[in-house]
Amino acid sequence: MSSTYPDDLRYSKEHEWVRADGSQATIGITGFAADELGDIVFVELPEPGTRLQQFGTFGVIESVKAVSDLYAPVSGEVVEINEALRDQPELVNDDPYGEGWIVKVSLSDGAELDQLMDAATYGESTAG
């Protein structure tokens, strides 16, 4: 179980994380979410160029026995998708904050990040 969460990320209550880097941001799902889903077998990715709306859905993630929508933690345009997930969806389980990232977006509004949780707050929200 991933009980600690990287400090440099922001978190949504739908269990997505964002790593902001200037005007660009990388999005993935948290280790907690990956553990809850179990072995990830498929990630349905949006086309590059798709515009994401904060807290709107942008894809689907499937495990053997569960399925969940992906919710955008921030608004923006998809600039890159993690093609490696097509053949190796298990990267989301193995390395949720690294090789298991899902999409990169160009941020529409950096202020949206303030509406997300920091690692400590997210950690508390998933405890117990």
Binding site: E36, G38, K65, D94, D95
Partner: peptide, 17 residues
């Protein structure tokens, strides 16, 4: 961890196996 070295896991409803 590189994928080639990784052991797969069977899913059960709790996600471990």
């Amino acid at each position: 961890m590189s994928v080639a070295e990784r052991a797969g896991t069977v899913a059960d409803a709790s996600g471990r196996g």
